[in-house]
């Protein structure tokens, strides 16, 4: 009875089965939603589908998309990381400051990324070992990270960065812009981690039933620590791109980015309660937000109204996905 029913059916039947399986994955409805919004924007705006606009759109979305990878891990385990925006700003300004102080860019970048990872680990210690709720821990450290960035810079942007550093935000390799390449690399790592390693499986298990996972002999705390460390790291990678793009370290950057990242994850079909979601879905969610931003801008919709429309679309998307999963 344990065998899959692999009756020799017609090709159409197997296609039907594959479609049915595909429909059960968390990315199915987000992808449909993305395609609908994408096509609608294309019909409304003549310029939307142009190559340069689309490249622009993806590059603009890359920062939120990268942060959303770390956020996906946190949400998948039933947690959340509100500190990503300030951590991004803190890492970025530290990179800028170190370069201005004369450190070689490569060293400054590595140190900046390490600070992001360390700050994430700081979150993780409280969540994993002190058993505190992630929303409270990261709400507190959100303020701490923002404050540290402001103290370090005195509140002013740090400029005067070496020319070569612009590569990460403005450069390109083989015709593809660097931020997009970095984003693809981060997603590739995220995908392999979640779908092909035991660590990834444990993260799903922790979100699905933390107690059962622990009792079966998995060191849940270590994996939670890892999740927040990685979230801090992706925030720092986003900080690298932003700082390079602007060629200055901005201590006030990234206000509200945590909300956009959460929106991307949830729009991508992940359950906010954990245990369900896919990294591909998060990419779709981030791009959906990007399409909305870009398309509404092209249409000349006032920025005030844009936030209202975005909010309504998020509500609608989540309403539909909840009805589907219930």
């Amino acid at each position: 009875m344990n065998q899959l029913a692999s009756t020799p059916g017609s090709a159409r039947q197997s296609l039907k089965m594959r479609l049915a399986r595909w429909r059960r994955t968390p990315v199915f409805y987000p992808l449909i939603g993305f395609i609908v919004v994408f096509l609608a924007m294309g019909l409304i705006n003549d310029n939307f589908l142009s190559g340069s606009n689309l490249a622009n759109l993806v590059r603009q979305s890359s920062i939120i998309a990268i942060i959303a990878v770390g956020m996906s891990l946190a949400i998948l385990t039933g947690g959340i990381d509100l500190s990503v925006g300030p951590v991004m700003a803190l890492s970025g300004t530290l990179m800028a400051g170190m370069m201005v102080a004369g450190l070689p860019p490569s060293l400054a970048i590595v140190l900046g990324l390490l600070v992001g990872a360390a700050f994430g680990a700081f979150n993780g210690v409280f969540v994993a070992f002190a058993g505190m709720p992630p929303i409270i821990v990261t709400l507190a450290t959100m303020g701490i990270a923002r404050g540290l960035g402001l103290i370090y810079t005195g509140g002013y942007p740090i400029s005067g960065l070496p020319e070569g550093f612009a590569f990460f935000g403005r450069g390109s390799v083989a015709g593809i812009e660097t931020p997009i390449l970095i984003m693809i690399a981060v997603y590739a790592v995220g995908y392999v981690l979640l779908s092909h390693t035991s660590t990834g499986r444990y993260l799903y298990a922790i979100g699905g039933n933390e107690e059962a996972t622990r009792l079966s002999g998995i060191r849940v705390s270590r994996y939670k620590l890892l999740v927040y460390t990685l979230s801090g790291t992706t925030a720092a990678i986003a900080g690298l791109i932003l700082t390079s793009r602007l060629m200055s370290g901005q201590p006030n950057a990234g206000v509200g980015f945590e909300l956009d990242a959460i929106a991307a994850v949830v729009l991508g079909g992940a359950a906010i309660t954990g245990g369900r979601g896919m990294i591909l879905g998060t990419l779709v969610g981030a791009m959906l937000l990007g399409v909305l931003n870009n398309g509404l801008n092209l249409m000349g919709v006032s920025p005030y109204l844009q936030t209202v429309i975005k909010g309504l679309i998020i509500l609608l998307a989540i309403y539909i996905s909840r009805k589907r999963t219930l």
């Binding site: 799903y204 298990a205 699905g208 039933n209 107690e211 059962a212 996972t213 245990g275 369900r276």
Partner: peptide, 16 residues
């Protein structure tokens, strides 16, 4: 509440 990861398949629960 303590034994199974309910959203998981049988396989994923066994190999946990």
């Amino acid at each position: 509440t303590q034994g199974l990861v309910l959203p998981f398949s049988c396989r994923d629960n066994i190999s946990l």
